[in-house]
Design a protein around this nucleic acid. Structure first.
Lengths: 233, 233
DNA sequence: ACCTGAACACCGTTCAAGT
DNA sequence: ACCTGAACACCGTTCAAGT
């Protein structure tokens, strides 16, 4: 309730595109290297400064605070997402490709899961995807606000599905993974809930990522089917 | 790849349910008060200790590290979710009620958005919901792994949709909200993407939460329709 | 069995001062 | 215009010591 207007890096002019010293591009590139290598917790202003051969606080000349830095790297993530022209492949194929691409990008940059859906997505790359997605759903036949509702339904599914995948992956790569131990744990946790085990395919724990892929596709097809049904006749 | 087995608070025996000193219940209750009042960043071991009239490090007797504390409070969140008996109301109504309930709980405890999908959900309350959800989708007619796929599709949608709502809400309550300013910002951000504004209902910014509710329902109906279509004939 | 305090190795951010 | 270093107000966690 208190305080200032909402703002975003993308709504201010950047600090001189000209030469001397650091540049936004360098800072963003170094940040992403740090993030890919060490995760979100690995990106600190001090480490970033060190990596750039600068004082820890020099970055504050280019960026008002760390959140703005995150907005900057966040948009790079959007830059990696592929959305084919819906006019070429039809809206359903375009939507599938986008969804799969979003998932791949998130899995490639696990730290992005902490940013997606939390930070305002007002950067140029995010806008490009958002705009393409609107065209896609318009072409499908959606009208008015339904265009946005359809878009946010699709992205919500992809976030919500991929987020726990990433949490699982990072937890598992930090620990020793043993399928048998895992099966035991599940049985222990479910001891009072026999429902939980009924019909559960325990061999799923032998190749988790294969199951995750199948699960993703199952849901994606369902979501697209559901959206298709809402199209005005 | 390195190190120890995966573990969870819920897989260890708690430290004496008996009397003296602090108890898990007290600690969890105080934590949630702190979280509701100040958000995730407001919960520090020092503040929690102070609130309990104890040294900052006393909590480490009850909990191995902060993440375990978070697992504990996380399960309380699941405890607030409502899932009617699918036998009484039918699977679609039960699924809707659960989805709306999840959204409400998340909006009520915005900090839960940072935990959902990230932390292992092995506590008793999470198990109760998971088990009820399996029964629900089994009753609907799903079989084998499809029961789980359907469940994770539904929860993925609810997370993914509610998460940005929460981010929006917290950002807006930290700033002065002015619909006109907001409309200007959107126009500015979309300056190079005329697609973005076409068919966009600018009056949406006058009552954002109403639009969010409509958007949630649109997507939920779509997801449930899509799932229904996958039922074996 | 339970709690303490000091200590360690970190954080983001501000700001006066330097070039 | 750009960068620095010191300082402030924090973190989570460990551990020897206390009762």
């Amino acid at each position: 309730m208190t305080g200032k207007q909402f703002t975003s890096v993308w709504l201010r002019e950047p600090r001189k595109a000209t030469s001397p010293g650091l540049s936004r591009e360098e800072i963003v590139r170094a940040s992403i290297e740090l993030l890919d290598a060490e995760g979100l917790a690995g990106l600190s202003m001090r480490k970033l400064g060190a990596k750039l051969g600068a004082g820890a606080t020099s970055i504050y000349w280019y960026v008002a605070h760390k959140d703005e830095l995150l907005e900057l790297v966040y948009d790079e993530v959007w830059g990696e997402m592929r959305l084919p022209e819906p006019e070429d492949v039809g809206w359903r194929d375009a939507a599938s490709t986008l969804a799969y691409s979003m998932r791949q990008v998130m899995l490639r940059h696990p730290w992005s899961a902490d940013l997606l859906g939390r930070l305002p997505a007002l950067g140029p790359n995010a806008m490009r995807v958002a705009s393409g997605m609107r065209r896609m759903f318009r072409m499908a036949g959606f009208e008015g606000m339904d265009v946005d509702y359809a878009g946010s339904t699709l992205t919500a599914y992809v976030y919500g599905k991929t987020l726990p995948e990433i949490a699982w992956n990072t937890s598992m790569s930090a620990h020793e993974y043993d399928p048998d131990e895992m099966r035991n744990m599940v049985v222990t946790a479910a001891r009072d809930y026999p429902d939980m085990l009924e019909g559960l395919d325990m061999s799923a724990y032998d190749d988790v990522s294969a199951i995750q892929a199948v699960a993703f596709d199952f849901g994606l097809v369902s979501v697209l089917d559901g959206l298709e049904r809402r199209l005005p006749a």
